[in-house]
């Protein structure tokens, strides 16, 4: 995936959000010295290339009561992960879902799914729902709760040329 300097300028101008006005793309385009149509075409193209996942609202899930979360991890048969991974990722309470390498013998798990809920009990219920979905294809699982944030730095695009 490659992005040029115009794409980079668009990302820098929009990653903190679009202005809440009737024609937000026209407003951003004016700031960047582009036409509204050119900006929209660029962004549609980035969406097709999956650089933009989607344009949507980002709710603050803590403010809406989803205060508990746990990193659930699963040892899923290799032959089944391509089929089961997307089903786990599509669940409404899963915010991140990745296949990662096992690190044997310390770590037998190859599927990671971050589960969110209103309480620890709710997270555990949702974890049980994933276990039911995976069935026999899952040999073992665990869940890791965070007890402390040790460092949190936002991942923002570095401002560099080109």
């Amino acid at each position: 995936m490659s992005i040029d300097s115009t794409d980079r300028a668009i990302i820098a101008a929009t990653q903190a959000g679009l202005p809440l006005v009737p024609h937000p793309y026209a407003s951003v385009a004016a700031d960047l010295g582009l036409s509204e149509a050119a900006l929209i075409e660029r962004m549609q193209d980035m969406q097709e290339r999956r650089i933009i996942r989607r344009v949507a609202v980002a709710p603050n899930h803590y403010a809406l009561g989803m205060t508990a979360n746990g990193m659930s991890v699963w040892d899923v048969e290799d032959a089944r992960i391509a089929d089961l991974g997307p089903q786990v990722g599509a669940l409404e309470f899963v915010s991140h879902c990745y296949e990662r390498p096992r690190s044997l013998p310390d770590w037998p798990y190859n599927l990671f799914a971050m589960i969110h809920g209103a309480s620890r009990d709710e997270v555990e219920e949702k974890r049980a729902a994933i276990a039911a979905l995976l069935g026999q294809a899952c040999r073992n699982s665990d869940i890791l709760y965070s007890s402390r944030i040790l460092k949190k730095t936002g991942l923002r695009l570095r401002s560099k040329e080109g």
């Binding site: 650089i51 933009i52 980002a58």
Partner: peptide, 18 residues
């Protein structure tokens, strides 16, 4: 009121380089 953080594009961090 910080019920939403923003409305706009969600970028794939890896797609932007890095």
């Amino acid at each position: 009121a910080r019920i939403i953080t923003r409305f706009g594009p969600f970028y794939d961090a890896a797609a932007m380089g890095g």
